[in-house]
């Protein structure tokens, strides 16, 4: 049911046109941050206003929307954003990754491979990968113009000098098509390889910082590294205790105050479908049924 007091997908048509033009320029120059006149949204900055505006500009009445936060469909902010679009656009929603046509995400890329025709919309807090090295927009813009990315390599190299390894575990910078260094949003670096050569369109929206950027399908995305310290995606060295998956990103759940803990898939849809298909982890499915 749509809320008749608002336009389809909340935003007015002129705002949507402005966002759509920015998205198209983003697609044309992969990894480049296109400035756009972000609007105040009915949720606070930091809650995904950039992603929400991009999703609103992309939604059609025939879309099926999935919203995740931390990989899960049932986290409060994901629930809130999904309800917002149900109310203002009247679209269908799903938790199943392969059924969705648009997936809005915060901090994760789904484990299930995306497909042609899907759009993954990322919520981005700080779109500028160089921001913590250089706080000034006027400077970082120049650095992108001149492809002056030495500072980033210096930072990563200082990590190696101090820790023996690159001590960036999420929000790990990437280079797009050999040109722009891009911030992949705070996804764990475990997810970085999924950015490259995806069949889906990937759109990034930063509302407070007023930037949109994009990765068309089949775009080459490389995580920055060094020959002697190659990029390594990492995750907890465990299997999922619920579904037994050995290759998915895991959340650590503290189970008691005696140091007890379990590891479960961060991607709730992935974990559920595996369990539905009969996969059982260390703590079995019985424990799960009991708690639900």
């Amino acid at each position: 049911m749509t809320d008749q007091a608002y336009n389809f997908a909340y935003l007015d048509e002129q705002t949507k046109r402005m966002i759509r033009r920015a998205i198209l320029k983003g697609i044309a120059v992969p990894g480049y941050q296109v400035p756009f006149a972000s609007r105040e949204m009915p949720m606070p900055y930091g809650w995904g206003t950039g992603g929400v505006q991009v999703t609103a500009a992309c939604l059609t009445p025939v879309d099926v929307l999935k919203v995740i936060d931390q990989g899960a469909d049932d986290t409060t902010n994901a629930v809130s954003i999904r309800k917002f679009f149900q109310r203002t656009a009247g679209i269908a929603v799903t938790e199943a990754t392969q059924e969705a046509t648009i997936i809005q995400t915060r901090h994760r890329i789904p484990e299930t491979s995306l497909t042609t025709g899907q759009i993954l919309v990322y919520q981005v807090p700080i779109p500028e990968p160089l921001r913590f090295l250089e706080p000034r927009e006027t400077e970082t813009r120049k650095m992108h113009e001149l492809e002056e990315y030495g500072l980033m390599h210096v930072k990563l190299y200082e990590d190696i000098a101090r820790h023996g390894t690159i001590a960036t575990s999420y929000d790990y910078p990437v280079k797009v098509e050999g040109r722009y260094v891009m911030d992949p949003s705070p996804i764990p670096k475990f997810d970085n390889p999924k950015l490259s050569d995806s069949p889906a369109i990937q759109l990034f929206g930063a509302g407070r910082e007023q930037r949109i950027y994009a990765l068309p399908p089949y775009t080459n995305v490389v995580s920055l590294d060094f020959d002697d310290h190659p990029f390594q995606p990492s995750k907890a060295p465990h299997d999922c205790d619920l579904c037994g998956a050995a290759d998915s990103y895991l959340d650590e759940v503290i189970t008691d105050d005696q140091g007890g803990r379990m590891f479960v898939c961060s991607d709730t849809d992935f974990c559920r479908s595996r369990r539905a298909a009969g996969h059982v982890g260390r703590l079995g499915s019985a424990a799960v049924e009991a708690s639900e």
């Binding site: 389809f8 949507k16 046109r17 697609i27 044309a28 992309c58």
Partner: peptide
């Protein structure tokens, strides 16, 4: 609102 949304998605797919 609906026609321009559908058209934009086609344009986006075309350019992407």
């Amino acid at each position: 609102p609906v026609q321009s949304a559908l058209a934009f998605r086609s344009a986006l797919e075309a350019l992407a």
